[in-house]
Amino acid sequence: MMQKNMKTNLYQSNPFHLVKPSPWPMYLVFGLFGFLLNLTMMMHNITDNYMMLLINVITLIYIGLLWSRDIMGEATYLGEHTSKVSEGLNMGFLLFLMTELMWFFGMFWAYFYSALTPSVEIGEIWPPMSIMPMQATDLPLFNTLMLLMSGATMTYSHHALMARNRFNSMFGLFLTMLLGFLFIICQYFEYYYCSYTLADSVYGSVFFMLTGLHGMHVMTGTLLLCLNFYRLYNYQLTSEKHTGFNTSILLWHFLDVAWLFVYIVCYYWGV
């Protein structure tokens, strides 16, 4: 297979990567469908099968790892990711972040609309009378500090990689992963001890949609950091070629800024 690919690259007249057929996008779509279907049924109290939801999550992670394995092989061993391909990947990821920005914008729009013009159904006040909001100086402040520190350690890791200091780059990336995992754990405990749920008026809906949307992105970003740590450990990332690491950095800093807005709006201004 590698000899065939080398022969193709030898006679290829363009620097672009002609992607081979892959089953992983289709498997991922079916996995996401099962996950969202089970999650929706749990939200509407149709089922409480947490084991099936866990199986869906494990399946999605497994499919993502297999797909990532193929991508890492194309980038590292087959030489498919030329400089022109890397430019396209970076541009595509920036466009993806723009769609994520619009998603967050929609959630913030719903929050501000509900907060500035509260309906009569919730007593025309914000937050509603039945809601006891989470205090901004409690666990959310600790989460904010951890995420900001993780942005600093991520920048440190990137600068160390550019300076060809592999050990410091791995150390900074490990700290970023650790802070990401701690953020997720603290977010879980915040949800566990929260006095309201997703079904408690529009406040609960927009609060959990905003913080949950951000939390899911942090989980995805942490998994991407784990993949980059694996690649860095196996000498697959260099100061010249680290497109996957670069896109992960962009995602992480995007989540840093997004969380600052979530914290100010949901935990400080909105209470």
Rank of each mutant, 00 (worst) to 15 (best):
M149E: 07
G151C: 10
W126R: 04
L148M: 14
E121R: 05
S150W: 06
P133Y: 00
T144Y: 14
G123W: 14
L139C: 09
A163E: 05
L139N: 10
A115I: 05
P140Q: 03
M146Y: 11
L148V: 15
L148Y: 10
F142D: 04
M129E: 15
M149H: 06
S157W: 03
S114P: 00
A110V: 01
L145Q: 09
L147Y: 10
I122Q: 09
L145N: 13
Y156N: 04
D138M: 08
M154K: 00
A115D: 02
D138Y: 04
A136Y: 15
F112V: 12
S150P: 11
M129L: 13
A110Y: 03
V120E: 05
T117A: 04
L145H: 06
T153S: 11
M132Y: 10
L147H: 14
P128S: 08
A152R: 09
S119K: 02
R166Q: 12
A110P: 01
I122C: 09
L161M: 04
T117K: 05
A115S: 11
Q135H: 10
M154R: 00
Q135K: 07
A160T: 10
L148S: 14
L161A: 01
A152S: 10
A163F: 00
L161G: 02
I125S: 13
A152C: 11
L139S: 10
P128N: 08
R164P: 09
T144K: 11
M146N: 14
S130I: 15
T153Q: 03
T137R: 05
G151R: 03
L148N: 11
S157H: 05
S114D: 04
N143Q: 14
P118W: 00
P127Q: 07
M162D: 00
T117I: 07
A163Y: 00
F112Y: 13
A110F: 07
P127D: 06
N165H: 11
S157M: 01
M146S: 13
L139E: 09
P140A: 03
N165W: 07
M132C: 10
L161P: 03
W126Q: 02
G151M: 06
R166S: 10
L147V: 13
H158R: 00
M154H: 02
S150F: 08
G151H: 01
M149G: 10
D138T: 12
M129S: 15
R166M: 08
S150R: 08
E121Y: 04
T137L: 12
T155Y: 06
L116F: 05
A163H: 03
I125N: 12
S119D: 03
F112D: 03
T153D: 04
I122D: 06
H159W: 04
Q135M: 05
F142Q: 12
A115T: 02
E124Q: 15
A115V: 07
I122E: 06
A163C: 00
T153G: 02
L116G: 01
Y156I: 08
M129R: 14
T117P: 01
L139D: 08
W126A: 00
